[in-house]
Simulated assay, not measured.
Amino acid sequence: MENNYSTQESDQKSLELTDLSFDFLKETAKWAKFLSILGFIGIALMVIFAIFIGVFLSMLSASFTQSSPFAVAPGLFSLIYLVLAALYACPVYFLYKFSINTRDALNARNSDLLTEGLRYLKSHYKFIGIMMIVLFALYIVVIIGAIVVGIAAATLS
Rank of each mutant, 00 (worst) to 15 (best):
M1S: 15
E2W: 06
N4E: 11
N4F: 00
S6K: 15
T7N: 14
T7Q: 15
Q8E: 15
Q8G: 10
E9Y: 07
S10Q: 15
S10L: 12
Q12A: 11
K13L: 06
S14C: 10
L15V: 15
E16Y: 13
E16P: 14
E16D: 15
L17E: 07
L17C: 08
T18W: 02
D19A: 15
L20C: 10
F22P: 10
D23Y: 05
F24V: 13
E27I: 13
T28F: 03
T28A: 02
A29Q: 08
L35H: 11
L38A: 04
I41D: 00
G42Q: 07
I43V: 08
L45I: 12
L45V: 13
V47R: 10
V47Q: 03
F49Y: 00
A50P: 04
I53M: 05
G54I: 06
V55S: 11
V55I: 15
V55Y: 07
V55F: 05
L57H: 06
L57D: 10
L60V: 07
L60P: 06
A62Y: 00
T65R: 10
S67T: 14
P69L: 04
P69I: 05
A73H: 05
A73Q: 09
A73R: 14
P74M: 00
P74S: 06
L76P: 10
L76H: 04
F77D: 03
F77N: 07
S78P: 07
L79R: 04
L79K: 02
Y81A: 01
L82Q: 00
L82V: 00
L84W: 01
A86R: 12
L87S: 02
L87R: 02
A89N: 06
C90M: 07
V92Q: 08
Y93D: 02
F98G: 10
F98A: 06
F98S: 03
S99F: 02
I100Y: 00
N101G: 05
D104W: 01
A105C: 13
A105T: 08
A108Y: 04
A108V: 09
R109L: 02
R109C: 00
N110W: 00
S111D: 11
S111G: 14
D112E: 13
D112T: 14
D112I: 13
L113T: 07
L113D: 07
L114R: 13
T115C: 06
T115P: 09
G117Y: 06
Y120R: 15
Y120E: 08
Y120Q: 14
Y120F: 13
L121H: 06
S123Y: 01
S123A: 09
H124K: 08
Y125E: 03
K126P: 02
F127T: 10
F127A: 05
I130H: 06
I133D: 13
L135T: 14
A137V: 09
Y139E: 06
Y139H: 11
Y139I: 12
I140P: 12
V141Q: 09
V141Y: 07
V142T: 10
I143D: 05
G145C: 01
A146H: 11
I147K: 11
V148Y: 01
V149W: 00
A152K: 13
T155Y: 02
T155S: 03
T155Q: 04
T155A: 04
